[in-house]
Design a protein around this nucleic acid. Structure first.
Lengths: 338, 338
DNA sequence: AGGTGCCAGGTAAGCGCTTTCCCGCCCAGA
DNA sequence: TCTGGGCGGGAAAGCGCTTACCTGGCACCT
């Protein structure tokens, strides 16, 4: 691999001069030397060693992102927002998938810290696990203590900058809508119990139902993984236990789609017999049949805001941006009564 | 940020010793010193500076991946495969989205080279652009000349290791199936002209049709972006120009889903009036209505194989793994005749 | 002509780590 | 008691780059 000295030697200048022309230092260099250096760079196909550069300037480079799984549409939308802002500012992203393993998340924080990333962004639901939170906060604090920046998306654990989708309010809207449509017997396909997203959404839903004097018995809530197939399985269990359900609220769209698919396989018509509600409004919610009534979260926007927070130091006081959720009525919930 | 010297000082040992215990060198260290060092590491929350490490050993670290867009399911599936193998081998991935911009792709190659990645994986269709290919090959050659490894997925340009989905054969299967089902008037929603994927698939399709004595006039092929909305628009154009079409082949699933959505909005029933075919078999092909008949590509497998190739040096001779495509019959193509 | 500034360019000191080489110690053998 | 070998530990030389600091030469002034 050609080094800066190779370039300098070939151009007949000192490494200092070569360095100056290569990264456009403020120090002026005569056109002639500049030309020779550029020539040498081209001939040797020289590319500066990024590690050496980062070591020498003590300037931090890329931004680290920890998500549960980029191939999950929820996260790919967020990532798209992150990317957009990062790219605008000429930052490279290092994306790490924790696959919902808290330990891996911890490891990645260390790893990113070691890579001197300018900021770490944690996206996706947090966990109900005091020990984990303690460890995570410890590591993040150590990172921030040395000038690193941290922003989280949809997590309560961290006390610094955060972008928070209003899960609770969104779920409340969902509950309101279900009551408005006259549903009494409601089943809920929830996400993993350990995730705060699950409990936030469940809380909002319960609040709305309570306002209408309805309760949500424990056996009407099934906890499952946040994916399609688990959603289908949970729906099956719900239906088996309580055949009279008129509505199923899945706490994310993937699971709602699983529910739809299961209902179809059992020849239960949606929305005539059972209404289905999702959460997140992923792009494909428009493409399933019937189209999915759901709560829209501005995912791309959330990513963009988080990156903006992470890259802008601010005055040190924690900034929390709450983004509103919105009800999107489509066909899976049927027409309004009357 | 705590450094190795800080740790050494605190433990009362030399940096050399500290380094040895921290990364388990072969050189033995007494238990007592080891203990003191570990203690200091914990107290200082020390994390080695990855850049300094990479500089000092001249060992290359992470693997660079260049895709068109991770939030496109096609690439997120591939990425999942890449991740799996990379994680197994303890490698970090640097994922770069080119957003289908060849220039950005070129930039990313340089950038990854500068970051001393152990390998570069280029995923996604190549371009029909001689100048671009020349430049790209130049940069890749420079990288490989210094020991870097390169693997491509679905690209003809590169002469080294490659994983190739059999697009042409897949499209041929599609064409066969369309003929078998008796379609005469076929419209094609193709991807961007500049992509080799588009031309490969078109070629395979034409071959199959030709075997049955059918031609595909130029005005029956509409070129669009590989996304849902472009697919819908192209379908509209196709239908307007030729209302008698009985089948629409979209060259990827996203576009096919766009086509489905447009047909629904025009109250054209699928498959009764028009059959729709996709390509790739993305997960959501099962969830749209009607479910999508498509050509399955083993995307995750492709990613995994590519990473395996990239991480295993081999004997230097180029290895090309061709992965078979497979027809998946679902509802959008209707029942077989008779 | 000698002095004063400037400015292009070079010299060298790190950035934080790994690793080679060397040193001093201890124990076995004579 | 002396020597040789082995072994744990430290000193120091880089890895490839940036940058503060210095130098030498020129133009301009007095």
């Amino acid at each position: 691999m050609a080094t800066l000295s190779d370039v300098a030697r070939r151009a007949g200048v000192s490494p200092a001069t070569a360095s100056r022309v290569i990264n456009g230092s403020s120090k002026p260099v005569t056109d002639e030397l500049r030309e020779r250096v550029l020539q040498a760079v081209a001939e040797l196909q020289y590319v500066p060693n990024a590690h050496a550069q980062l070591l020498a300037r003590s300037h931090r480079g890329p931004v680290g992102v920890i998500v549960h799984d980029v191939s999950d549409p929820y996260f790919s939308e967020i990532t798209r927002g992150l990317q957009r802002v990062a790219t605008d500012q000429g930052r490279l992203l290092m994306i790490c998938n924790s696959y919902r393993d808290p330990d891996r998340e911890l490891e990645y924080v260390e790893l990113l810290r070691g890579h001197q990333v300018a900021a770490i962004i944690l996206a996706g639901s947090g966990y109900h696990d005091a020990e984990f939170i303690r460890l995570l906060n410890g590591k993040l604090a150590a990172y921030e203590a040395t000038g690193g920046r941290v922003a989280v998306i949809g997590r309560h654990e961290h006390s610094g900058d955060a972008v928070m989708p209003d899960n609770r309010r969104g779920a409340w809207l969902l509950g309101q809508e279900m009551c408005r449509l006259g549903h009494e017997r409601i089943g809920v396909v929830a996400g993993p119990r350990v995730l705060t997203t699950t409990t936030d959404r469940l809380t909002g839903l319960r609040e709305a139902l309570a306002e209408h004097g309805r309760r949500l018995p424990a056996d009407r809530v099934r906890y499952a993984e946040f994916d399609r197939d688990s959603g289908a399985a949970a729906t099956a269990a719900l239906l088996d236990a309580e055949p009279g359900l008129t509505a199923i609220a899945a706490l994310n769209d993937s699971m709602a789609i699983g529910a739809l698919s299961l209902l179809r396989s059992r020849a239960v018509s949606v929305p005539e017999q059972v209404s289905v509600f999702g959460f997140d409004d992923m792009p494909l919610a428009r493409d399933v049949t019937p189209t999915l009534t759901t709560i829209r979260l501005p995912l791309v926007e959330m990513g963009a805001r988080a990156m903006a927070l992470a890259l802008d130091a601010g005055d040190g006081s924690p900034r929390v941006e709450s983004l509103a959720a919105e009800l999107v009525r489509r066909d899976s919930s049927g027409p309004p009564p009357g």
